[in-house]
Simulated assay, not measured.
Amino acid sequence: MTHEHEVEIVSPVARSVVPSAKPPLESVLARISIEDRAALDRLLTETVEYLDHPSFARARTAKDLFGVTAEQAAQPWVNSADARPVAKGCGTNATLTNNQEQKLFLRMNYARYRMAKLFQAHAGKRLTGKAASELLFWQRQVIATRCEIVQANVPLVLAMAKRTRMGNVDYAELISEGNMALLRSVDKFDCGRGFKFSTYACRAILKSFSRVALKSNRYRGRFPTEFDPSLEKSRHAELLREQVEIDCVDELRGILRQNLADLNDVEVRVIQARFALGQAAQAGGDVEPAPKTLEQVGDMIGVTKERVRQIQNRALAKLRSKLQDDFLAA
């Protein structure tokens, strides 16, 4: 019968290492998958932060926490499928005991500790294939263990959001802020103080709710009304263009009414029928009829539509000449 290892309660020390190692040779990178090459490039630019613990210096810590020795973790591999995370803990829906929780946080920080030691050993040097493999191995353990902790504590966010009464904050935004606070809490939690992670995380989640409520109130103070997309676009240019069109039509009607362009009776009838000018005034109505086609106008005056087109073009030329003369005179 196996017993779960007891976790030593010691207050860890926060440490950070800025990587200065150089990427491996191209021949080494060629044996690594594209996904892992991208992960390695990202690791070389990110600071490694972890909470140190006295047990990390012991040779058997890797075996106790992950079930592998340091030598096994350093074995080179070619494909990411050959190096699945070996972090083992509770299921994603299980409630963690205090001892299980502390062990998960020790796993995550130990994996980061091993990454920091690799960067320190290769400071200013080029990473070897063995070092790159081990670095990616421990990075996968960090991700696996971190995900396990987050998934076990996601219900905290939902519970806190339901208990919090914030009518002016969208529920989805509240959940999003709570999840971000949970992720930050996982990275900063000190399991060596003897407290449950939920105690620390709940406080951080509530603070994030307060921040999003304050941000929402500040926004509503500046913009008290709801967002209206119709207010984002001004119709001034459109209204100005419509007014210009109305003025031009009125001017054309005046020219036709007074026959200032020297049009004959047939040309006047064709222009009025084709462009519906002056017909509303004659009918005494408010809505002008639709413009008539060449064929319809031809039936009115007893000619073919081609002849109507010729009459229309001759009348438009006279009107254009009159408008240009008025413009130059002005």
Rank of each mutant, 00 (worst) to 15 (best):
D262P: 04
G284C: 11
P291E: 14
M300V: 03
D299E: 09
I271Y: 01
L277G: 02
E267W: 06
V266T: 13
Q272S: 08
G278F: 12
A273C: 09
G284V: 05
P291R: 14
P291H: 09
K292P: 06
L294G: 04
A281M: 06
A273G: 04
Q296G: 08
A290M: 12
V287Q: 15
G278N: 14
V268P: 03
V297H: 07
D286N: 15
T293G: 15
T293W: 12
V266M: 05
V270C: 05
G278V: 08
A281G: 05
L263W: 02
K292H: 12
A290P: 06
A290V: 09
A283I: 06
A281P: 01
A281Q: 14
L260H: 11
A290N: 08
M300Q: 07
V287W: 15
Q279M: 15
D265F: 07
I271R: 00
E295R: 11
A261F: 11
T293L: 14
Q296H: 09
E288V: 07
V270K: 01
A280S: 15
V270P: 04
V266Y: 03
Q272C: 06
Q279A: 14
G285R: 13
P291D: 10
E267K: 01
P291M: 12
P291C: 13
R274V: 11
G285C: 15
Q272D: 04
P289S: 13
A273F: 03
V268W: 00
L294D: 13
E267F: 02
D286H: 12
G285F: 09
V268G: 00
A281H: 09
V268F: 00
A273Q: 12
N264L: 08
G298D: 03
G285T: 13
Q279D: 10
R269W: 01
D265E: 13
I301D: 03
V297L: 08
V270N: 01
A273W: 03
K292C: 10
E295N: 08
Q296A: 15
Q282N: 02
L263E: 01
L263K: 04
D299Q: 11
G284N: 03
A290D: 13
G298I: 04
K292M: 13
M300Y: 01
Q296W: 06
A273K: 07
P291V: 13
I301M: 01
F275S: 05
L263F: 00
Q282V: 05
Q282A: 13
Q296C: 04
R269M: 01
I301P: 04
D262E: 09
P291Y: 11
D262A: 05
A290I: 05
M300C: 02
K292S: 14
G285A: 10
A283P: 03
E295K: 13
L277M: 06
R274N: 06
F275T: 05
R274M: 14
R274Q: 07
E295Q: 10
Q296T: 14
Q296N: 13
R274H: 09
P291G: 13
L294H: 10
L294Y: 10
P289T: 14
V268A: 00
A283E: 10
G284L: 03
D265K: 07
V266L: 06
A261K: 11
F275W: 10
R274G: 08
V287A: 15
N264W: 06
V270W: 01
F275P: 03
G284Q: 09
Q282I: 10
G284P: 09
V268T: 02
V270R: 04
V297P: 08
D286E: 15
F275I: 04
G285V: 15
I301W: 05
V266P: 00
